[in-house]
Amino acid sequence: MKILLAFVFLLPALGNAQDTHDHHSHEGHLHEQMVDGEKLEVDVERFDKFVKGLKDKQIAVVSVKGMVCDFCAQGIEKTFKKDKTVAKIDVDLNKGKVFIAYQMNTKIDFEKIKKMIVSNGQNATKLQVLKL
């Protein structure tokens, strides 16, 4: 039982272990850009890591309701990965956002995104698009 308890108390360190190696880059400060007069409400480190190395892309930042569980959000990633116009996707559970990188010539359709999110059981409520 003591071993089990010790294991449980060490879990937070295990869960966050990969974060200790990631240092927040302030290069570019893309997350501080205003989109349609509003600041992006994103997990800064997650977003900076997502856009690192991306060029000539549009980033759709989608606000999603009901996305509280990693296991459930896996389905969102799978759904968008089937879309050939999507270059990259990531999920920001802390802020309830989905980041989707599209090619620059793709017309981003929020209604289509809403349908894809709802097919997984969550609701997309807002779209902000950032051009790199």
Binding site: V8, P12, G15, N16, D19, R46, F71, D90, L93
Partner: peptide, 14 residues
């Protein structure tokens, strides 16, 4: 959840 992991992390519930 004793800690809030990010997407893709190892998650735990007690």
């Amino acid at each position: 959840a004793p800690y809030l992991g990010a997407y893709g992390d190892f998650h735990t519930w007690i």
